[in-house]
Design a protein around this nucleic acid. Structure first.
Lengths: 335, 335
DNA sequence: CTGTTAGCGCATTCAC
DNA sequence: GTGAATGCGCTAACAG
């Protein structure tokens, strides 16, 4: 037998000299006018004295709910998703929910592809930054999509929470245009996610709307060396851009390297912008002009929407605005 | 009623024309010589046909286990902890365990300090990077300490998994000494965690053992501006160090800034080293000489130890070696 | 106002 | 070799 088995509601009942159901009522907070205040206090103090904690498993079984939601993210290595988790967990905890994380399926390069690992022991899922068009995986499980774009399918849609990336990109283009830039290079993430498609479209539209505006583009993976190579391609091509718009702060770091390798000074010879505003943005030299995306807020709002959904409501799609943060990597073009 | 309630073991029994207990036996894998192979096959196919998934809550209740462990980390904002989680989750999944993350208590600056949020619905805890001496929080809950130093208390110790940070620091000191450096500056993290105490001691010892070796130290928070200020203090003091040893890659980024502000070239005028080898290390210019810490492996080994512990064993303390990665931020001192 | 009863889905004795 | 019965701890009807 275990050293000291935890007290049960039955023990509390005995200690307080009442019945189990009374304990349940009191501790469940539903005793308004059903149990006398004196008894309630009595029960509470007994529970306190014994250090009683309700057994979640029993609770889950009885209630048919697990009070656990699954957060799916592409990876936890990217600095962006820690805050998303934090935000989601914060509001979840406030409602007695836990959050388990899982990375996108194929990440499980392990031996057995989750034997029965991907339990159905969850009440709902928060899916972040999905590949475009990968909706519809969730048969019957309440889900909210994060940073995956609006749900354009007909019928009843999945609730969504997104960033206003298009506005963010327009802000960057506007800032650069105001400084006098006309030839833009887009160092684009070669990742099939809504957010990157949206960024590309918004930038293209903004530049197209600019008299004399020209845009070239190179794609790369989201890592420094790949980004450096892509930026170098843009910089050594014809009609060199005076500003490099990068899909991600890390990509911007690669652009810095390409610029330095070519003897170009940032921002005197070349303006560079990032996206996301992660820690890296201020670690770089010069500090990076970028768009701050409220990652933690994304997690928090997403969880709020999911909790709403679980409560039987139909949360409306939400869009979280990004904020242009001007630092030292942008300046008027030379000449 | 719900749209389609999931099949239970009872449904499977009915479908297979056997009893519930037979289903449990077969699916539980404990039917060696108790159930006929034919029946077993029959049950399996019935389960398959119905898409049966055992109800975790019921299982947990019956077994008195939750197959969930808690990973406690100081923060998820630091890029270091994502991989730790990933490693832990990987081996946990392989054993049918889930992992929930929580950040250190006081992070819950929320309204109510986890009303009943921090459930006891866990089988064990993996505590990473604790403040020194903060052991002993886990009354009765099996725990493994990660990156928190060896457990020096008498009696039965908590199993530990640590990095060989002392060796790592010695490797850095040795590398720098070999290049000809004698005056070292330590930009130290002002964080009360074992790993930083160990780094400081190891560096001090290494420099003390070096003929003509001198060491100055400045403390800072783990953020770029604080690090930059600390590094600047060291650089403007008497007998300027020729090498700055930083407790963290992010701190090294701050050191870069201080150097540039003083017109010092890295590495020609000043060598700089980091610690951890996060993404940032290669994003900087010049790329950072640092010590790679196998973060994912820490999580994996920690989970392995915890699973061992839960199985009734006494896992031995483990130490994961760090690896010196020489890049472009270190060079012989000038003159 | 409070106690008694029943059952969530499963793993496990114990009869047969 | 298999089935019937029991109870894990809890909540929600329903009595009293």
């Amino acid at each position: 037998m275990p050293a000291v088995s935890r007290p049960t509601s039955k023990d509390v009942a005995q200690e307080a000299g009442v019945s189990q159901s009374t304990v349940s009522l009191v501790l469940g907070g539903k005793w308004s006018g059903r149990v006398s205040p004196a008894t309630a206090r009595n029960v509470r103090s007994a529970a306190e004295r014994l250090g009683y904690r309700p057994n979640q498993a029993a609770r889950n079984l009885r209630l048919g709910t697990t009070r656990t939601v699954l957060l799916m993210v592409p990876t936890l290595s990217a600095p962006f998703f820690g805050p998303v988790y934090t935000g989601a967990a914060r509001v979840a905890a406030r409602h007695g929910f836990g959050v388990v994380v899982s990375t996108w399926p194929d990440d499980a390069a392990g031996p057995a592809d989750s034997p029965f690992g991907s339990d159905e022991a969850i009440d709902g899922v928060l899916a972040s930054s999905m590949a475009a068009g990968a909706l519809a995986e969730f048969r019957g499980t309440p889900a909210v999509m994060l940073d995956s774009g609006p749900d354009d399918r007909p019928g009843d849609r999945v609730p969504t929470v997104d960033f206003g990336v298009a506005d963010g990109m327009r802000a960057i283009a506007g800032h650069l245009a105001e400084l006098g830039h006309r030839r833009f290079g887009h160092v684009a993430a070669a990742v099939d996610q809504w957010t990157f498609h949206a960024r590309a479209e918004a930038l293209a539209a903004a530049v197209a709307g600019l008299p004399g505006g020209a845009l070239t583009r190179a794609r790369c993976a989201i890592d420094v060396t790949s980004a450096r190579d892509a930026a170098a391609r843009l910089l050594t091509g014809p009609a060199r851009p005076t500003a490099l718009v990068c899909d991600d702060d890390l990509i911007a770091a690669g652009a810095y390297k390409a610029a330095r390798a070519l003897g170009l000074d940032v921002p005197a010879d070349l303006s560079v912008t990032g996206f996301d505003d992660v820690l890296l943005a201020t670690a770089l030299e010069p500090e990076l002009t970028t768009v701050r995306l409220p990652a933690e807020e994304l997690g928090a709002q997403g969880m709020t929407a999911l909790l709403d959904l679980l409560a039987g409501h139909r949360p409306a799609p939400r869009v979280l605005p990004g904020e242009l943060v001007v630092r030292d990597s942008t300046a008027p073009p030379r000449g």
